[in-house]
Design a binder for these strands. Structure first.
Lengths: 218, 218
DNA sequence: CTATATTTTTAGACTAGGCTAAAAATAATA
DNA sequence: TATTATTTTTAGCCTAGTCTAAAAATATAG
């Protein structure tokens, strides 16, 4: 359907459109892809030709509905594969990006449908980023740090910010992984530490820990 | 490490060396890869340059130890992914080749180590072909048809020849899948039918069925 | 052992995707 | 507003991998 290079451009532009609202400049694309502006100009002209984005010379680009769909689908595949790598193959959350960059380009609708089902149709990847659905629709839900959650509120762990082996092992010991429900029982203003409940265990966590866990409020 | 095209050439040559012993001709490669002989000449000169094969003009090629290792590794990846697709994602045995052709080029030692472990280090792919080990060594064991097995002998199902949904459903009903042990209790010369034992069940199968199951004698 | 057929290689061209250097357009500043 | 700086585009070149057409080597047949 689309070449590897095309998919990578669409994905990069998609991310940039979300990061800064509005048109995306040639230079911004070049920087994010670690390539040269002249190469970007070449490619965006081809993508405009294919109606995947709109382009006016010197004015930057904007993805069309079709372009967005293609990009979101690549991102969907990337994030689903990351879940697979972490949940099934027991990779650490910080080892999976490079491999997912390759796997995201595998072409097969059926494969992704089955992979999604196999993984239990997850809503978030191991970094806490939402996984677009099969129509490319991205649930625009803000992920928050656990430290931002108020007393008596609950959240689902959707990822981590820090991902050192030490931290991951700590989480493991505390039985916190993706999808784990966390209830904030108490919060100390003095040092930002918290008392939380995970399954039936209640325990203390430091501010540092709370600032490195992403949750989705529920 | 190696490009997609290079890996595909090495793989094709590896298969041809096993199919017909000795040197592999330019034309044979071209035919098996559905490309033109002139393109093959170009590529084999590059591969010879890289010491992956030996090449004398007009005399065909032969993989070096290094070339064989690279090829066997690609085949290892291909076959492991096929096992994943069938065993975990529940694809049918005849739907997986194309997807595995893509997955076999994903570059990550660690990924394959973990995938292999996740799958229980299988020895055979869903078509009954052996999976090379991590050093590229291919256990040269002949797969046989179940119909060739003698009375009172045992075999492990390593794959199927026919792979229509109907046949696969039949096997499913009889609880026969990859790794299943089958003992031949009796054989009828008249029509080639058999009585076999699978787990604790004993039942009759026709010659047609016996001729479409690959086994490894044990 | 020539003549013909087949196989293989070479030469030259093409596309995708990238680069450098220079030109053109836009933005910023005096 | 004129000038300078920045951004973007164009022009031309490069590599990987493919192709066609023609030349060269090898194999086959009379």
């Amino acid at each position: 359907m689309f070449t590897l290079a095309e998919e990578n451009y669409l994905k990069a532009i998609f991310h940039l459109e979300h990061e800064f609202q509005g048109e995306v400049s040639t230079n911004a694309i070049a920087e994010s892809m670690e390539t040269k502006p002249s190469s970007v100009t070449d490619m965006i002209q081809k993508l405009a030709e294919k109606k995947l984005l709109t382009y006016k010379r010197y004015k930057g680009v904007q993805l069309t509905a079709e372009g967005k769909k293609v990009a979101a689908n690549v991102i969907r595949k990337h994030r689903l594969w990351e879940v697979f790598l972490v949940e099934k193959l027991k990779f650490h959350w910080d080892q999976v990006h490079e491999i997912a960059e390759q796997l995201e380009h595998i072409q097969s609708e059926e494969l992704i449908t089955r992979l999604d089902k196999f993984l239990g149709s997850p809503d978030f990847d191991p970094h806490g980023d939402p996984i677009p659905d099969k129509h490319g629709v991205l649930k625009r839900t803000e992920k928050k740090l656990l430290s931002e959650i108020d007393k008596n509120q609950k959240g689902v762990c959707v990822g981590v910010k820090e991902s050192s082996p030490e931290f991951l092992q700590y989480l493991d010991k505390k039985k916190i992984s993706i999808g784990t429900k966390i209830r904030v029982l108490g919060k100390e203003f003095f040092d930002g530490s918290m008392i939380i409940q995970v399954f039936d265990d209640q325990f203390f966590i430091s501010k540092t820990v709370a600032e490195n866990i992403y949750v989705q409020t529920i």
